[in-house]
């Protein structure tokens, strides 16, 4: 488990009043910041909001948005809504898991991808669909398209490293 950068927590907590109603919004912020909910942070939230740790833990494990282990750089949500299901989404998912060598939905060991299933993102007209990083929706998927989709983000994930020398030279210039 990586070292938790606790200094990010306080400014984040400052934005919210210490009220129970803010528990879920705070956890959402933490999830966005760390890509998971670190144990230490949950304990801090429990003390600050005066909500028993058992309940914070229960909330953190109840909702699908939260994860207690780090998620990958790219979160691929494969829609398994009814429309996607009847149009062959399970096969697309299977293909993706096989390509990433995952036994089931989860995160690859190199923390590049997290594959999740989601029940309907409301693009049923374009079934089957997958959404990457909560923003880019890929319509009309087939097994053949899966490889290309993953490759696109794989390259993107590695791109910043390659781009760095360029940036550096720009800065010098």
């Amino acid at each position: 488990m990586p070292q938790v950068e606790m200094e990010k927590v306080e400014p984040l907590l400052e934005q919210f009043e210490d009220q129970r109603i803010n528990l879920i919004p705070i956890l959402q912020e933490v999830q966005d910041t760390y890509r998971y909910l670190p144990q230490e942070v949950l304990k801090r939230i429990s003390r600050k909001l005066r909500v028993p740790l058992t309940e914070v833990y229960q909330v953190a494990t109840f909702y699908r948005c939260f994860s207690l282990v780090p998620r990958g750089k790219h979160v691929v949500q494969v829609c398994l809504g009814t429309a996607c299901h009847v149009r062959g989404a399970p096969r697309v998912l299977d293909r993706m898991l096989r390509d990433l060598k995952l036994a089931g939905p989860g995160t690859t060991p190199d923390l590049q991808f997290t594959v999740e299933t989601v029940r309907c993102i409301g693009c049923c007209g374009l079934a089957p669909v997958a959404r990457v990083d909560n923003a880019n929706t890929h319509p009309h998927l087939t097994q053949a398209k899966v490889g290309g989709l993953l490759k696109k983000y794989q390259e993107k994930a590695e791109a910043p490293k390659a781009a760095k020398p360029d940036e550096a030279s720009h800065a010098k210039a």
Binding site: L42, P52, T54, E55, Y57, F62
Partner: peptide
Amino acid sequence: AGAIGFSGRGLNRSVSRPFDMTS
């Protein structure tokens, strides 16, 4: 005390202690 609680949802729901550590 509030030492134990529920965690998870649906088929993964169980009675547990936070982070499965002694409270």
